[in-house]
Design a protein around this nucleic acid. Structure first.
Lengths: 137, 137
DNA sequence: TATTGACTCTATAGTTACTATAGACTTTAA
DNA sequence: TTAAAGTCTATAGTAACTATAGAGTCAATA
């Protein structure tokens, strides 16, 4: 089965531009073109793109995915490389969660400081933001 | 006290380029320039920049901060506008936390699937990533 | 067969919040 | 006076796309 980019986009739920972007980033290439220079894809390409999408859904960067794909393409390399990348990625995600959790607390404290229909002149939130500012100083 | 951009950068722990960037984005402007066209700042500018930095530490976007500043500059507007923005921002942060928490679970499941020194040919992680792909299909 | 509409092509600009650089000018201290 | 440090504007780069323009291709209808 040979398909053009539009159909690949539908099958993979991925925009046409994203697919072309992945090609530019060397993650996926249409090995052949039609007479009129249209990209043509086969089953293996579909699977490769779904692999990419799955990795993206795990927030892996295109660079990381490129590494995984090349490891996948050369089966003699060490599994540990994959492990290490995933490990680092987990750490990064956990750091970000911790940051956002703290942020969430601060925002909620801020929200509590103003709840009524007052003019900004007396808005607790703005007062808090300004107070924190002068404390910093 | 009148200072130049370098000193403002030091006081506020903000890069010189960031300050110029905030000016371009109309968050902060040097009202006066020296004879040699250097930006000159006063105490009010320092406070305004610290306010901006505090908002940035809460992950508010420059657009949101611009709104807050203009509300702050026109004290007759409604406090509710501020509330609403903070509310939306909290929701956004909480959505992102939920996403990342799910992501973290998936990554840890993935990690469990390969732990030994095998070649990639038998790497559980890559197998898992590929499996998920074919399931999607 | 000609034409229309849908699809595809490349190349470029925009998004966000900056950082980094180049090349020129200004200020300050020795 | 001169050298170093600071500043100026303008531009390009970051990540992972999205959006657009202008031109070419393909399939089906009139």
């Amino acid at each position: 089965m040979i398909i053009k980019i539009g159909e690949l986009a539908k099958i993979s739920d991925c925009s046409v531009q994203s697919i072309r972007h992945y090609e530019k980033e060397q993650l996926l290439s249409a090995k052949i073109r039609s007479d009129g220079n249209f990209r043509l894809y086969d089953q293996a390409d579909i699977e490769r793109l779904l692999f990419i999408k799955h990795c993206r859904s795990l927030d892996l960067s295109l660079g990381e995915i490129r590494q995984l794909l090349s490891l996948n393409d050369s089966p003699m390399s060490q599994c540990d490389d994959v492990n290490q990348m995933i490990e680092q990625h987990i750490e990064q995600v956990e750091r970000r969660i911790a940051e956002l959790t703290l942020l969430n607390k601060q925002l909620k404290a801020l929200r509590r400081s103003c709840t009524s229909k007052r003019t900004v002149e007396h808005c607790g939130i703005l007062k808090q933001l300004n107070k924190a500012v002068s404390q910093n100083n």
